[in-house]
Structures are given as C-alpha cells and as structure tokens.
C-alpha cells in the first residue's frame, strides 16, 4: 500500500493542486488582516464562526470535489487507468490510495486554514486563552464531515471522463447549502451541508439560528454507501 501511495504522490505533487489548496487559507488570512487593520476587534469564536461560514459552507465542499477530480484527471487524460489496470496492482489498492490522498488533501486544507486563523488572531491580538478544544473540534469535525462527500466525488470523478463535469455538478449541489444548511430537516442528510454543520461552532460564540447538528448515523451511512458504490464501480470500470 505504501508503494501505491508513493506512486500517487509522485503524480499529485507536481500538479496545480497546491495552488488551489492555498485559496481558502490565503483568503482567511487576507480578510482577517484587513479587518484587523481597520480596527475591528474580535474574539477567537467570532473569527472561527466567520471563517467557517464562508469556508465550510462553500469552499470546503467545492475543494473536496476539485481534489477528487484532480486526482483522477491525469488518469483520464493520458490513458492512466489503462496503464494502472494492466499493472500487477489490485484495483482496490488503486481506489484506496486515491481516496486516502483526497482526504489527506482535505486535512491539509483544514490545517492550513487553522494556521491562518491562528496567525490572524495573534496579529490582531484576540483575547487569550486560545480556545484549542473548540478549534480542534471544529476543524476536525469539518474534515470528518467531508468524508462522505469525498467518497461520492471520487466515484463521480472516476466515472466521468471530463474534469469539469464532476466539479460543476458538485458546485451546483454546493450552492443550495445556503438554504439546506439552515434546515434542520434536510441539512443533516445533505452531504454538501454536512461539513458546515460540523464546523460552525455552536453555543456561546455560535450563531443562534445555526445550531442544527449533524446526524452521525446519516454521516456514517452515506459514507459507507458512497465508498462502496465507488469501489464497486472501480472494480468494474472499463479501461
């Protein structure tokens, strides 16, 4: 499995994925610093709420789809599937490696964004102490809530030959988050809304009308369903 991941790493490390990964942290850093320069005072929880609304409602689901599409793009483009499938490697390993890389990219995105938030808080002089527990829960929760979406987007990206198609479908389904994320009936079951429900802090600092909780059963159920569907497709995929 290590060699499979190393092989995938060679392909991904020279792609444009890194520039795309920088978007969310760079945006957070910029807005935070501009707000600070204008003299806005804030707290850690305010900043976390602000960042997670923009990031988790839109960018995180979009980026998850883009990562999945990028990790499959070079296989579609240059006959990579055919090459991989004619090598002595089980398809399950290929599938697992691709999935692990996507969630690793999402994890890195979360870490960079957390770093950006810490820098903003430090420069703008947010009052101590740093709410480590809340930050960790928010960022880790956002990551975990992305897993079903990552599995679904990997399936879409392996099945669709074009790069734009899965990304566009993902974008179209991300935009309703603004509404569905506010619905306690549908939000917890909508894969695109789950990251935002998991990430936006609740309680004291959180917005009162955004206290819808994720449903762990829905999260785990959809994750298993999407992962299995994608895996079965990969096993049968023509090359």
């Amino acid at each position: 499995m290590m060699s499979m991941l190393q092989s995938e790493w060679i392909k991904i490390k020279r792609s444009a994925i890194w520039a795309i990964m920088a978007i969310s942290p760079a945006g957070a850093l910029l807005t935070g610093l501009i707000a600070g320069a204008r003299g806005a005072s804030g707290t850690w929880m305010d900043a976390l709420t602000f960042i997670s609304i923009l990031h988790a409602m839109l960018l995180l689901p979009l980026l998850t789809g883009v990562y999945a599409a990028m990790i499959c793009r070079y296989e579609h483009a240059g006959g990579g599937w055919k090459l991989l499938f004619s090598l002595p490697v089980p398809r399950t390993k290929i599938y697992a490696a691709k999935f692990i890389l996507i969630v690793f990219m999402v994890a890195l995105t979360q870490l960079f964004l957390l770093a950006a938030l810490l820098i903003v808080g430090w420069i703008n002089g947010f009052p101590s102490p740093v709410p480590w527990r809340e930050l960790a829960l928010s960022f880790a929760g956002g990551w975990i809530a992305c897993l079903p979406l990552a599995a679904l987007q990997l399936f879409a990206s392996t099945a669709l030959h074009s790069f734009a198609a899965p990304v566009a479908v993902n974008a179209v389904l991300t935009i309703p988050n603004v509404l569905i994320g506010n619905s306690s009936r549908f939000g917890p079951y909508y894969p695109w809304a789950q990251p935002m429900l998991a990430m936006i802090p609740r309680g004291d600092g959180g917005l009162p009308d955004l206290t819808i909780h994720i449903a762990p059963a829905a999260l785990i159920g959809s994750f298993v369903l999407f992962l299995l569907t994608g895996w079965i497709y990969m096993m049968k995929k023509p090359a």
Partner: peptide, 25 residues
Amino acid sequence: SLVEYPSYYGHLTAVENLEAVRRLL
C-alpha cells in the same frame, strides 16, 4: 504492455512517469 496508444502523465517528466510505475513494480 503498450495498448492502443501510449499512457503517460503529461505534467511529469519521463523519469517521474517511470518512477510512478516503478514503485508499483
């Protein structure tokens, strides 16, 4: 094998292309 048309990763060099396959072999 080489089937139909050559498979390659355009954004990588020849050495990187071969390295990506070598890891699996």
